[in-house]
């Protein structure tokens, strides 16, 4: 091999190695930081059991917000059309957090309750995050099919 070919080969090999390392690291980082969004009914169906932490999305049930008077602990219930999930959070809630507001909470399950480490409410009150809207529509759809299936089974 002449020197210029040798050099070209070295460049190609180093680029390939760099690409493999980059892809490997990206896959690694993606896998560790992927975060799934579920609605309360999807969680109750057990779809979220395999994820230690995930995001819970839905509406704050009217009248469910309860604060303690001496700590910053807040509990509330997040609902979608068919499910409900009690949530606990310690800290200051976002400005737009209130009854019937769509929220996304990040956290983990602990004995039937969702312990949130972060709660987000979208800043426009007329606006529901698209992914949440889709998730709720999907949960809704699944339920319909199941309802239909049970009806069919009942016949």
């Amino acid at each position: 091999m002449n020197p210029s070919r040798k050099r070209r080969l070295a460049i190609v090999i180093s680029v390939l190695v760099a690409a493999v390392v980059a892809v490997g690291l990206i896959v690694f980082a993606l896998q560790r930081n992927m975060s799934y969004l579920f609605t309360p009914s999807q969680v109750q169906e057990g779809q979220a059991t395999q994820y230690p932490t995930f995001r819970l999305g839905g509406m704050v049930k009217s009248g469910s917000i309860q604060r303690t008077s001496d700590t910053l602990k807040v509990s509330f219930i997040v609902v979608d059309d068919a499910g409900a999930m009690p949530v606990e959070y310690t800290g200051i809630l976002p400005d737009l957090f209130r009854d019937n507001q769509s929220v996304i909470a990040t956290g983990r399950m602990d004995s039937g309750r969702f312990i949130a480490s972060e709660v987000l409410a979208k800043h426009d009150e007329n606006y529901m995050p698209k992914e949440l809207k889709d998730a709720m529509a999907k949960a809704h759809e699944n339920r319909k099919i199941e309802d239909k299936a049970t009806q069919d089974a009942g016949k």
Partner: peptide, 13 residues
């Protein structure tokens, strides 16, 4: 599914 990657992904890489 409905998935997104969090800030740690960006921060790390």
């Amino acid at each position: 599914g409905r998935v997104s990657v969090g800030p740690p992904y960006f921060g790390f890489l």
